[in-house]
Design a binder for these strands. Structure first.
Lengths: 334, 334
DNA sequence: CTGAAAGCGCTTACAG
DNA sequence: CTGAAAGCGCTTACAG
């Protein structure tokens, strides 16, 4: 743990002033070729690397983009991390993640942590912060929010239309001939869960199909809740031939519940998920689902944030949820 | 983007010197109660938060732990991220992730990035850096490495015994009565893949079973490669009743290949994976696998690093791969 | 207990 | 082109 070399060490050894070393480092001001060479030589020799934190302090720019996430381990967020990383690419910014865990106080704590680090900008992924809170943050810091639309700053919001997604999923099942379609919702405290649910209802209504309360059960977006929800559905008296599950993770659980009962997918029951999470193409059977292009969205979030940081006009982008047809849902056979 | 308040602003408004503000902030030096109260009042009123980067510079401690990972999106690493986050807990350190992507140059670049940020310590997850490189890093910075054992710094290394894991997986299949057991290896450029393979070979040997080259195919740890590998296996003349797959992701792919051929798991073919990745309990059928306790290991990595940073003696921990019996492998029926 | 000063490792007007 | 100085926002001996 040798004390790191500083710009002064380099200056001394190269026989110039620290200012000059700084100049050759940044390359924005002309420096005499010989000094330049001397400095560079010492830098390579000593393997010197300027301190990004000192630079940040002096420049008034941390070179860090804060990312408020809700989980560090879900593949869903993982794909977004990758997208953000790619979107930041060769920019002078590196992401720093802080986890809110879907809990208001933790989200606030994460926000504080990030703000103490004086991050240059912020990307907020879903979460329970109110629109008002988000607007306040946006007034202080360049912000882009993913997964929701916040009135007043909608140009900085990247999200899909969940109602539409829920509608398309259900509609697909209807078009396949299904009439008794169950729905396992996400955590209804979350807007996206409510929207997908609403889309489901709307699709039924548009086709003149009644919504049967017996056929609707709330999950919490985890595999386990999907399994439990399917068991609940199976135990009720209302029959069904298809189910729209509000995310892929719950769909896995639901599928397992069916497997345990010896009910075949898609022969006996058709299943449609939501998200098209990483790996969903490799389930048995491959899951038909609504794709939410989170990697693209993460990339776009980083790009929009960079535009804001560069003082450029931002180019708002919209994303569509898209039906991905695989093998878990088929035409109803009578 | 109002310019953030500084310690000077607070000092002025509270009628004290910046030093005093700093003292009440840090609470390590006594401060007159009235001044203390005045300062606190202004701090709350202005909602002041000290700059962590300025503090870092002044204290000579960044408050950041660098994590060199190989992927931002895989659930496998995601679980480790969670573990590290938990292990860092209420410590004054926050993780900063940099991705090496299993490519030497990117890993080096990530290391550089982290070192420019003057991280206080480093956690390296797997990767292609040589033992020598890792030893050099360890000489400069508190380091803990996950997933491998580096001679000379083994007390700072957290890993399971992959040979043993491969052995146990294969042995389990043998105990179930299987005699013709195939193996889909991981990327053999990686030590863990080679170790698991070796464990497989050893188990066969110990049971006097011949290793059939026809029954061994190399994958690259992705679902797609597992699918391809299984197709290759199926196309060969050698028959088999069970396969040990070097990780769960490939096992999913392999399972799908079987499904496409109408071959049942576990009735026709038994499958054992490796990792016990998040979600593996919810595949169809639930996958029998070798559990690698990565979340625990991530937690432990953070704890060991904290001990090093605190100058405490480190308590080395060992982790065991453990067979998790689920439903994808059963007794051979003739 | 407390303020003025020096310092952390840089950058960047300023003056030459 | 280049050095000395001031400054970024803190901390922490030092002197009182």
């Amino acid at each position: 743990m040798a004390k790191p070399i500083t710009i002064h060490d380099i200056a001394r050894e190269a026989g110039v002033s620290p200012s000059t070393v700084s100049r050759v480092l940044n390359g924005n001001v002309p420096v005499a070729e010989e000094k330049r060479a001397a400095v560079l030589a010492v830098i390579t020799k000593r393997n010197y690397q300027p301190s990004a934190v000192a630079q940040g302090l002096a420049r008034g720019r941390a070179g860090v983009v804060g990312v408020l996430t809700q989980s560090m381990s879900s593949p869903f967020y993982g794909e977004i991390f990758s997208g953000i990383e790619q979107g930041l690419g060769e920019s002078p910014y590196h992401p720093m993640f802080a986890n809110g865990n879907w809990r208001a106080e933790e989200e606030l704590a994460a926000l504080n942590l990030l703000s103490q680090r004086r991050v240059d900008g912020l990307i907020v992924l879903w979460g329970t912060l109110s629109d008002e809170q988000l607007r306040r943050v946006a007034a202080e810091t360049p912000l882009v929010v993913m997964g929701r639309s916040v009135a007043g700053i909608e140009r900085q919001c990247l999200h899909i239309n969940d109602v539409r997604g829920g509608y398309d999923a259900t509609r697909y099942l209807i078009d396949l001939g299904h009439r008794r379609i169950a729905h396992i919702t996400g955590l209804l405290a979350q807007q996206d869960a409510r929207d997908r649910y609403q889309g489901y209802l709307k699709a039924l209504e548009d086709s003149g199909l009644p919504a049967d309360p017996q056929l609707i059960v709330e999950g919490d977006f985890t595999e386990q809740s999907g399994l439990l929800a399917m068991q609940a559905l199976l135990s009720r008296s209302s029959r069904f031939t298809a189910v729209f599950v509000a995310n892929d993770q719950m769909a896995y659980g639901a599928r397992l519940a069916l497997y345990r009962q010896g009910i075949r997918v898609p022969e006996d029951i058709s299943l449609v998920g939501f998200d098209d999470q990483l790996g969903t193409a490799y389930t048995t059977p491959p899951l038909t689902t609504i794709r939410q292009p989170v990697a693209d969205m993460g990339r776009a979030a980083a790009q929009v944030l960079r535009q804001m940081l560069d003082g450029q006009p931002i180019t708002p982008r919209t994303f569509e949820a898209k039906l991905v047809i695989r093998e878990s849902a088929v035409m109803l056979r009578i």
